[in-house]
Design a protein around this nucleic acid. Structure first.
Lengths: 143, 143
DNA sequence: CTCCATGCAAATCGTTTGCATGAGC
DNA sequence: GCTCATGCAAACGATTTGCATGGAG
């Protein structure tokens, strides 16, 4: 049978376990994160949330992001030259290629690079707590 | 004879070539960058500059950083959870390992990783314009 | 002597926070 | 009902900018 890891998080269960309230704004915001196929920033999440419930505030979006980030349910990415963008956690670890023209984010994974990073850190006498690998590029002109 | 590349930039010559004025604040700020063995942020550069000339302003530090960055003479690094930190350009390309306890920055270089990045980007149909690889770690406890 | 660069203060942007009210449980 | 979460507006930190003056060429 399959390993029960790398599941998409069940946000409501996590909130309950953390002993915090399951409120309407939280439900809506987290629903948006679950549905998102992209990497929206706080303002974009706010826009999508307002489309569902006009009374939701940007503060609550930020507060919810911080709450979920703290419990490891979402990842925050501070790509260059823009606001933080969010992604639901739970998938495999991956890095990002950012299309500098469109802002699109493409996920990729390289075990070999991860391994080399570990070797480098070890050689320098460090344990890696976290890392960030971002490629900024432009679509190759298909001449 | 050695290749004349990867030299430390001669800031005054660059400024002259760019047709901008060589002022006292610029001379002082750039002198600080040249002498810096670390990766100071704007405020730290400002502090060091004020120690030389108390009339220098933080705005001028920022303006000078932007000017030099524009001409490729310095690099700006937006490490996690802090202000931008600056480094004079001209050395070999390298990436960074950030000591999350002290904030110290250790430079490293991996041709193999660079090569793998290129392969990944190519496979995804992109040309890499720029990339960012940062390892955040903690000194290994030397039991 | 002409502009460009400066210092200062105010503006900006993304994000966080204090406070009084309202909604989970 | 008792808190905790919310909306709002104000505060925040890093950085940028408008403006009048001063200094480089």
């Amino acid at each position: 049978m399959a390993k029960a890891k790398n599941q998409k998080p069940d946000y409501e269960k996590m909130l309950r376990k953390a002993g915090v309230r399951i409120t309407r704004p939280r439900r809506i915001i987290l629903g948006i994160l679950s549905d998102a196929g992209d990497h929206p920033d706080a303002l974009e999440i706010f826009r999508r949330a307002v489309a569902v419930d006009g009374s939701i505030s940007l503060s609550t979006v930020y507060r919810t992001m911080k709450l979920m980030e703290g419990m490891g349910a979402i990842h925050r990415h501070a790509f260059e030259g823009g606001p933080s963008r969010f992604e639901q956690a739970g998938g495999d670890h991956h890095d990002h290629l950012i299309d500098i023209e469109s802002g699109d984010v493409i996920e990729f994974k390289s075990d070999r690079i991860e391994q080399l990073q570990d070797e480098i850190a070890k050689k320098l006498g460090y344990d890696i707590v976290h890392h960030r690998l971002e490629l900024y590029g432009r679509k190759r002109r298909t001449g």
